[in-house]
């Protein structure tokens, strides 16, 4: 499914792009724990978004395919028990008067039982989770 959103943040595009792979900063994001970098340079973290069903911890691997002042592309793979989520997120950074406007679109695929159980609620849950973690990370730039 395709999800989209936008928000503004104080950081510049370059500062936002520089967050990629910087685990020390990302540890400060409220929904991310156990943040590390693996041998391939991908960020691994326990991502625990708030959902209407309570917190759902997901073992997450975030690979940055591209990151520069104009935007970034992230490939995210998250698993929880028999469920998996693959998301490809494209971000565009536009300079504004007091920082940047971030517009994002995500192509999300649910896998495992979540694809069945979650098919009616996934859009809302995922949209909120992505928006929150992106805002949280952008605020660190």
């Amino acid at each position: 499914m395709r999800l989209t959103g936008e928000f503004t943040t104080a950081g510049s595009g370059a500062a936002l792009a520089a967050l990629a792979g910087r685990t020390d900063e990302l540890k400060a994001v409220a929904t991310l724990d156990e943040v590390t970098t693996d041998a391939d340079g991908a960020v691994r973290a326990l991502f625990t978004p708030a959902t209407p069903f309570g917190p759902l911890p997901l073992r997450t691997r975030i690979r940055t395919e591209r990151a520069d002042a104009s935007g970034a592309v992230l490939a995210v793979h998250a698993v929880r028990a028999q469920h998996a989520v693959d998301v490809r997120i494209e971000l565009a950074f536009t300079a504004g008067e007091s920082g940047s406007r971030v517009t994002w679109s995500a192509e999300l695929a649910l896998r495992g039982p979540a694809a069945s159980v979650g098919q009616r609620v996934a859009r809302e849950v995922a949209n909120r989770a992505i928006a929150e973690v992106l805002r949280g990370a952008a605020a660190l730039a």
């Binding site: 694809a115 159980v117 098919q119």
Partner: peptide, 14 residues
């Protein structure tokens, strides 16, 4: 099944 091979009726909800 969807095009990705995901079963869309994996329990008695669906």
């Amino acid at each position: 099944y969807d095009a990705d091979g995901q079963l869309t009726a994996a329990n008695f909800y669906d």
